[in-house]
Design a protein around this nucleic acid. Structure first.
Length: 427
DNA sequence: AATCGCCCCAACCGCGTGCGT
DNA sequence: TACGCACGCGGTTGGGGCGAT
């Protein structure tokens, strides 16, 4: 499967874009949408390769890009997400609306990484250089964090895909209707579409939020597309997460044993759904064996996957409430036991609408989720059993230690960020 | 005012992957 | 199944800006 050159390099311009070129590109996309990037330069009268055009558009010309200094909130978000996801800039960018992955990457490399280093924190591991992993608690903490990162990573993958698909749909719509890109009546495509797509309860776009969870042992993240709805399979050393990109971008979790959810104090306003108040509960009961069955989907008021792994497999349970209505309880719960690792993750978000600051929605949402999950949720465990597991009760002190480690870790980061202005010597 | 060196960021490059044929 | 195309992603680069000397 060879890779062809992105374009014929002969006669094509490289380097900085001129205002005239920008204008040509803008005008063309405004009128026709970008369509095929490869074909765009010729149609737009540009002596550039399609790749260059795409980069110029996505990183600079797109109308829904915020430029300028990063806010403290944005810095926090980047640091936290980087701790979880590493250099997965596109995934990180999904939580920083109006910021491009390139911009975030540059900001990290030129600012944040240096600040962390100055603070004595390894910007790669996000751990204090004086506090190396040397005992069990920290090892477990790292494993804990890693496991959570895998889940968050999977979710972010889905979100990224959602955004991309939304953009695609919106561009198609835009191309057919030719609304002005910069006009006041025009909403930036990705943002606009993403928000509207959250009204998926009764929409044809979001027909089904499908999740399946299995555990595997490959240790490789993988993605695949199923026919019909795109699905994403993400494998981790201990688990594989499969879900439709039509799944809601943000989930909140409740316990699996009781669907009781805890209202957090977060002000995040994810999923400002104006759709109907359908309360579709999705429950997944999947195999956690190394096999990769993805289960069976039942749609309707109750949706259920049942994996059919070998006997004796531990079950994974995932419930996803589709109740993405303003002010309603949005909950996802999952309980995974398998491969020597089991944990229960419970959380809930209440959505509120106090203003239209959608930037804050996404920026604060994950942060709140993260902090609440790690620091406040006593059921989050990597060593004990799930909610029903009797193991969980017997290892209280160790688990508490892990929670404390996580809590301390993140609060240290946040406190440092919060206490140090961006231009301070410390930060 | 001229030169130097560092910093920043827009743009490039190469790779991985999905999809169509 | 194999192959090629198109696109997205992450790492890297190079040139402009700017402060120090």
């Amino acid at each position: 499967m060879g890779r062809s050159p992105c374009c014929d390099k002969v006669g094509l311009k490289k380097g900085p874009w001129t205002p005239e070129e920008d204008q040509k590109l803008l005008a063309y996309i405004e009128e026709h949408g970008h369509g095929s990037w490869r074909a765009l330069p010729a149609k737009a009268g540009l002596q550039r390769c399609g790749k260059s055009c795409r980069l110029r558009w996505t990183n600079y010309l797109r109308p829904d890009i915020k430029r300028g200094k990063f806010s403290l909130q944005e810095e926090q978000t980047i640091i936290q997400l980087h701790a979880l996801l590493g250099n997965r800039w596109s995934a990180i960018a999904t939580h920083l609306p109006k910021r491009t992955d390139n911009e975030i990457k540059n900001y990290w490399n030129t600012h944040l990484k240096k600040r962390l280093a100055k603070m004595g924190i390894d910007p790669v591991t996000h751990k204090s250089k004086n506090d190396l992993l040397s005992n069990d608690s920290q090892s477990k903490n790292a494993a804990n964090l890693s496991h959570m990162a895998q889940w968050e990573s999977a979710r972010l993958e889905a979100e990224a895909r959602l955004v991309r698909e939304s953009k695609h749909r919106c561009c198609s719509f835009t191309a057919s209707n030719n609304p002005p890109l910069n006009g006041s009546a025009s909403t930036p495509p990705a943002q606009h579409q993403l928000r509207n797509n959250h009204h998926y309860n009764n929409s044809n776009v979001f027909k089904a939020a499908t999740w399946s969870i299995t555990t595997g042992s490959s240790g490789i993240w993988s993605k695949s597309h199923a026919s019909g709805f795109h699905s994403v399979d993400l494998e981790s050393p201990t688990s594989t997460l499969t879900f439709s990109e039509n799944a809601p971008p943000v989930m909140a979790a409740g316990t699996t044993t009781t669907t009781t959810t805890t209202t957090t104090t977060t002000t995040s306003k994810h999923l400002t759904n104006n759709g109907n108040n359908n309360n579709n509960m999705i429950e997944f009961v999947g195999s956690s064996s190394a096999s990769s069955e993805s289960g069976i989907v039942k749609e309707g008021g109750e949706q259920e996957w049942k994996g059919f792994g070998g006997s004796g497999n531990n079950n994974s349970v995932c419930r996803l409430s589709e109740n993405y209505e303003e002010g309603l309880d949005n909950s996802l719960s999952f309980n995974i036991n398998g491969g020597g690792t089991s944990w229960t993750h419970a959380h809930s978000l209440k959505t509120t609408t106090t203003n239209n600051d959608d930037d804050a929605i996404v920026e604060e949402g994950f942060t709140s989720l993260l902090l609440n999950n790690i620091s406040k949720d006593p059921s989050f465990s990597d060593g004990g059993g799930g909610g029903d597991d009797d193991e969980s009760g017997g290892s209280g002190s160790g688990i508490s230690e892990h929670y404390q480690d996580n809590e301390n870790y993140w609060h240290i980061i946040l406190n440092l960020v919060n206490s140090s202005p961006s231009d301070s010597p410390m930060f």
